[in-house]
Computed example of a mutant assay.
Amino acid sequence: MTTNRLIIIFLLGIIGTGIFMRITPKADQSVPVVYLKHGSISESIQERGVFVPIEQQKIYSEISGQIERIPVQEGQLISRKQALLNVNKTDINYQISQVAYKWKSEMIESSHLSRQIKHKRALAKQHIISIEDLQSLNASLEKLNLSIEALSDEVIHLKHKRHLYNVVSPIEGAISSIFVNEGQMIETGTLLMEIKNPKKLKIEVLIQEYESHKIKVGQPVRIKSPIFPEEPLQGKVAMIVPSIAEKPGASGMKIEIMIEDDLSRFNVHPGNQVDLEIFLSHKDDCLYLPIGAVKKIKNNYFVSLKNGLQNKQVLVGLQDQNRIEILDGLDVNEGVVHVSTY
């Protein structure tokens, strides 16, 4: 009997405790509140770019003929004016020898005709021959001298052309691609090789269309990479290419970033990717809130106040990854509810 009473008392205690907890109001939980602060904001865009050579050159043939020798190979480092390819010179040497032989023959003929004219001039003064005969000889000599001059120019042109049969590099760099083989016949305009300078690099990055209007030449850029983890490099927007077509349906623009720091300290190669922060604008001594305390509804911005007012509209300015500038609509003594989403 005593045991049953104890069980009943225990159950009544549990029920009573539950009822008390239901009717007792919960303790007021504190809500995180933030206020306007003074500080600086740098608006920026986060993008990913890639190192590419500043100097790169495609080498095309300026003559036709048969490739005799290719003394370089893909991946090889080369210096400026180093020999890349030789084309067989048999034909050009034959052309030069033929024109030179004709030039020499006409020079001999011109010398002989000059002596003949000198002799005929003396005869003309003695009226032994007519003046017309002398004029005819002078005309022949003048025509011959014009031909000699043209042949001389042709020899110079052919010798200059013969230099083109020895293809040399216009820049320092590395052979990235060779498109021809020894023994191959080539025509004028044939693509022979491609050369890139891996020591002189820039960064290329694609900017999406909705952000492209913010980019301007000269904007500073912070460059980060695991290749140089301890110190970000500095750069600037150097060039803007209005449209991109690397991918079907892509829109926006490509920008080129020149690197202001010395890259020789790091093991950087074309194709290495980097993280970029492009600084669009900067403002000191502005009023701001944590960016998570402001919500955007369509094209308007709102905050929720500590006093319970929901969706009070505010006018915003610059914003970065953590802060958003408040231009109007909020006093410095008004607390704003800021519930972190992290």
Rank of each mutant, 00 (worst) to 15 (best):
residue 270 P to A: 05
residue 331 D to Y: 02
residue 144 L to H: 02
residue 39 G to R: 09
residue 189 G to T: 11
residue 298 K to Q: 06
residue 121 R to S: 15
residue 162 R to I: 08
residue 214 K to C: 01
residue 37 K to H: 04
residue 323 R to Y: 00
residue 138 N to W: 06
residue 146 L to A: 07
residue 212 S to C: 03
residue 15 I to L: 15
residue 158 L to T: 03
residue 291 I to A: 09
residue 17 T to G: 15
residue 34 V to H: 04
residue 15 I to M: 15
residue 207 I to M: 05
residue 248 P to M: 07
residue 317 G to Q: 01
residue 98 Q to D: 02
residue 28 D to T: 14
residue 225 S to W: 14
residue 207 I to H: 00
residue 271 G to R: 10
residue 175 I to M: 10
residue 201 L to C: 14
residue 176 S to K: 06
residue 261 D to V: 11
residue 11 L to T: 11
residue 2 T to V: 11
residue 142 E to P: 00
residue 147 S to H: 09
residue 118 K to G: 13
residue 136 S to V: 15
residue 193 M to E: 03
residue 266 F to R: 07
residue 99 V to A: 04
residue 108 I to E: 08
residue 90 T to Q: 04
residue 287 L to Y: 13
residue 281 S to F: 08
residue 20 F to G: 12
residue 14 I to P: 05
residue 135 Q to L: 12
residue 280 L to S: 03
residue 170 P to I: 10
residue 126 Q to H: 05
residue 313 Q to C: 07
residue 130 S to P: 00
residue 80 R to W: 00
residue 16 G to M: 01
residue 313 Q to W: 02
residue 217 V to W: 05
residue 213 H to S: 15
residue 292 G to I: 03
residue 11 L to I: 14
residue 219 Q to E: 06
residue 289 L to R: 00
residue 111 S to L: 13
residue 116 Q to G: 07
residue 6 L to M: 06
residue 89 K to V: 02
residue 215 I to C: 06
residue 205 V to N: 01
residue 181 N to E: 15
residue 220 P to T: 12
residue 336 V to M: 03
residue 301 Y to Q: 00
residue 245 A to I: 07
residue 76 Q to G: 11
residue 176 S to H: 05
residue 220 P to L: 15
residue 139 A to R: 11
residue 17 T to L: 15
residue 285 D to W: 03
residue 164 L to E: 14
residue 122 A to P: 02
residue 337 V to M: 08
residue 300 N to H: 13
residue 11 L to G: 05
residue 302 F to M: 04
residue 173 G to K: 00
residue 39 G to Y: 09
residue 75 G to A: 04
residue 328 D to R: 08
residue 264 S to Y: 10
residue 279 F to L: 10
residue 45 I to M: 14
residue 291 I to E: 01
residue 192 L to P: 09
residue 235 G to W: 01
residue 231 E to V: 13
residue 53 P to R: 14
residue 213 H to K: 14
residue 196 K to P: 02
residue 246 E to Y: 10
residue 213 H to N: 14
residue 341 T to E: 06
residue 158 L to M: 00
residue 256 E to V: 09
residue 341 T to P: 02
